[in-house]
């Protein structure tokens, strides 16, 4: 296993995590609220891919738009049921309402698909291994790029950004804030759906996967800087770095063999945890966050 291969794996995993984290941060910026169901939306995306694949014998790359559209609808539903009624409430209320959505999604998936792991079809027909991972990196990059273009260069994007910046001012200049928030949920959920398809091909999907992904997204977004898009992507890659590169270090640097115990899977997790704590101590506002200060 050489460095190229490791970086390749790292990017594939990191890209999928980045999609999850991006969806999380979009909703965070638009509403100030944490969508705890984001991980469960990834799981739902995985099962959507599985069930579309059972009906249509298509490769993943063609199922992707279907899954994303389907999840966008789910996102709208989540916004209507779990966010809009609570938009004037403290953000922890949305914490709990989306946790409830997650419980519902998880148990609905168990009832509908059973508890066993399922695999989504590969992005490209027949392909396996490196080709698949390259496709995943490209698809994720394309989605992140498309998101950037939509946010920076379209009317809708400008409205979404205005809403994220200040809801009251956005409302005052005639933007329909609730519609924008619903649109944000739809975009965020379809990103989760895309991540779900990609991850469910590489690593399968089970109804209980959501908790793991929401933790990853939460860590990525916080360590990157609460609300920062670039930070979310960086944070996701940092997590993948510790999941893929750290345990592989003894292969790259044979001198480390003597302390190979420090590179077990468990130690990789602990190393990531320690790095996060150190980062928080050195940069309490996250990697890309603005230092908080009141008007001078």
């Amino acid at each position: 296993m050489d460095l190229g291969q490791i970086v390749f794996n790292l990017l594939a995993l990191g890209a999928a995590y980045a999609l999850v984290a991006l969806g999380f941060v979009l909703i965070l910026n638009a509403t100030g609220a944490v969508n705890f169901a984001q991980g469960d939306l990834v799981m739902a995306g995985g099962f959507a891919a599985v069930s579309f694949a059972s009906m249509l014998d298509w490769p993943g790359v063609l199922l992707l738009p279907l899954v994303m559209a389907g999840l966008a609808l789910v996102g709208v539903a989540v916004a209507l049921v779990a966010y809009l009624p609570l938009r004037r409430r403290p953000p922890e209320s949305v914490f709990i309402s989306t946790i409830a959505v997650g419980i519902i999604a998880q148990n609905a998936a168990t009832l509908g698909f059973g508890a066993q792991a399922r695999a989504a079809p590969p992005l490209l027909p027949g392909g396996d291994g490196p080709g698949q991972k390259l496709a995943i990196i490209l698809v994720a990059a394309a989605l992140i790029g498309a998101l950037y273009v939509m946010f920076m260069h379209t009317q809708t994007g400008r409205r979404l950004r205005a809403t994220a910046q200040d809801r009251d001012i956005a409302a005052a200049i005639g933007i329909r804030v609730d519609a924008m928030v619903i649109a944000t949920f739809a975009v965020a959920a379809s990103l989760a759906g895309a991540a779900g398809l990609l991850l469910a091909n590489l690593f399968f999907v089970t109804p209980v996967d959501g908790a793991n992904y929401i933790l990853k997204a939460y860590i990525a977004v916080t360590i990157g800087g609460w609300g920062s898009i670039a930070g979310a992507v960086t944070g996701a890659l940092l997590i993948a770095l510790f999941e893929v590169l750290w345990p592989a270090l003894p292969l790259l640097l044979p001198g480390l063999d003597a302390i190979s115990g420090a590179f077990s899977q468990t130690m990789s997790t602990i190393a990531l945890d320690i790095v996060i704590l150190l980062l928080l101590m050195l940069r309490p506002q996250g990697l890309f966050g603005q230092a908080a200060r009141s008007r001078a």
Partner: peptide
Amino acid sequence: LAYGAILL
């Protein structure tokens, strides 16, 4: 499922 719905 019912628990989640009631919680919501």
